[in-house]
C-alpha cells in the first residue's frame, strides 16, 4: 500500500475555503450570492463574500440594536471583554500567523503583526474605564451652576478598514471604537480579508455581545457610498482609503452630518497606534448644567 504523501485530506484536495461574513453574532453568507477570490502571486487564496448594500443595511440594524446595551455595560465589563479578546487571540496566534502567510506576509512579519494585535487589545482594554476621567471636565461658569462635560459614545461607527494591515489594522481600529460603547460595522481589507473573518471567530467566543462588531467583506467603493449616505450610521472611520474616496465619502455624508474620522496611522508604530485620543474621536461631548444653591457662606456650593 502506497504511503500517503499528505497527512491531511484538506491538503491533498485543493478546495478553497469559503469565508462568510459576521453580522449580529452570526456568520451568514451574503444575501446577494456574489463571491470573489482574492489572489496572491496569481493564485486564488479563498472564496470571499462580496457584500451587497443590503448586507450593509442588515449589519447596521444589528449594530444599532446592540449599541444601547453595549454602552450601558459598565466600563469595567467592556474592559474585561477586550482583555478576553486578547486572550483568545493569544490562544489562536499560530492560526493567525499561518493565515497571514497565505495572504502573502513573511513569517516574521506575520508573527510581529499577531503579537502587536494582542498587545493593542490589552492596551485599549485598559483604557475602557480610564478615558472618561481623562477627557471629562468640571467647567467654571459665572453662575450658580455645577457644569460638567462628559463623553458619550457616538453610536454606530462604520470602519473602512486598512488596506495594508489585514489583521492589526482592523483590530487596532475596532478596539478604540468599541471601548467607549460604540458598535462597529467594519468593511474588511478587500484583497486580504481572511484574517478579518477569523478575527470574528475570536470575537464570537470572547463574550462580546452579538452585533457590537460586524464585519463585511467586498468591494470598498461599492459599500462606502451606502455607508456614508446611511442615516443610521453616526460616524465613519476611514483608514487611508485615498483622497478621491475620502472626498466622495465626505460628500455623501454631508447630507446627514456624519462624523468622519480620517485615520492616518501607521499601525505598526506603537506611538501612533496606542493613543486614547482614538477613543475620544468616536465620542460626543455632553455638557450638563446643574443648578446649585449656596449652602455655605464660606464659598463651596457642593
Amino acid at each position: 500500500m502506497a504511503k500517503a504523501k499528505n497527512n491531511s485530506a484538506l491538503d491533498s484536495v485543493q478546495i478553497l475555503k469559503t469565508y462568510k461574513m459576521y453580522i449580529g453574532g452570526n456568520f451568514p453568507r451574503t444575501e446577494s450570492g456574489r463571491y470573489y477570490s482574492p489572489q496572491v502571486n496569481g493564485k486564488s487564496i479563498a472564496n470571499i463574500c462580496r457584500a451587497s448594500p443590503k448586507d450593509m443595511r442588515n449589519a447596521v440594524v444589528a449594530a444599532r440594536s446592540a449599541q444601547p446595551p453595549w454602552a450601558s455595560r459598565t466600563a469595567y465589563n467592556r474592559s474585561q471583554i477586550l482583555y478576553r479578546i486578547a486572550e483568545m487571540l493569544q490562544g489562536r496566534s499560530e492560526q493567525f500567523v499561518a493565515e497571514l502567510q497565505i495572504q502573502g506576509l513573511k513569517t516574521q512579519d506575520a508573527r510581529i503583526q499577531v503579537q502587536a494585535t494582542i498587545d493593542r487589545m490589552i492596551y485599549y482594554s485598559g483604557w475602557c474605564d480610564k478615558f472618561q476621567q481623562l477627557f471629562s471636565s468640571v467647567n467654571p461658569v459665572a453662575s450658580s451652576h455645577f457644569n460638567f462635560s462628559v463623553l458619550e459614545p457616538t453610536g454606530v461607527v462604520v470602519l473602512l478598514a486598512s488596506q495594508t494591515s489585514p489583521l492589526l489594522g482592523l483590530a487596532n481600529a475596532i478596539a478604540p471604537i468599541i471601548a467607549s460603547g460604540n458598535t462597529c460595522v467594519a468593511i474588511a481589507n478587500e484583497d486580504q480579508p481572511l484574517s478579518a473573518i477569523t478575527f470574528c471567530e475570536v470575537l464570537q467566543t470572547s463574550d462580546l455581545p452579538p452585533g457590537v462588531v460586524n464585519v463585511l467583506t467586498g468591494k470598498l467603493d461599492e459599500l462606502m457610498t451606502h455607508a456614508a449616505k446611511h442615516l443610521d450610521v453616526n460616524a465613519i472611520a476611514a483608514d487611508q482609503i485615498g483622497t478621491p474616496n475620502l472626498e466622495a465619502v465626505r460628500a455623501d455624508a454631508a447630507g446627514n452630518l456624519k462624523r468622519i474620522a480620517d485615520l492616518q496611522i501607521d499601525w505598526s508604530d506603537d506611538n501612533q497606534a496606542q493613543n486614547p485620543y482614538l477613543i475620544e474621536k468616536f465620542c460626543e461631548v455632553k455638557t450638563t448644567w446643574h443648578p446649585i444653591e449656596q449652602i455655605s457662606s464660606s464659598g463651596s456650593g457642593y
Binding site: R57, V60, H230, L231
Partner: peptide, 9 residues
C-alpha cells in the same frame, strides 16, 4: 432618496 433611513427621523 437612495439613502438608508434611521428611526431617529
Amino acid at each position: 432618496t437612495g439613502a438608508y433611513q434611521s428611526a431617529d427621523y
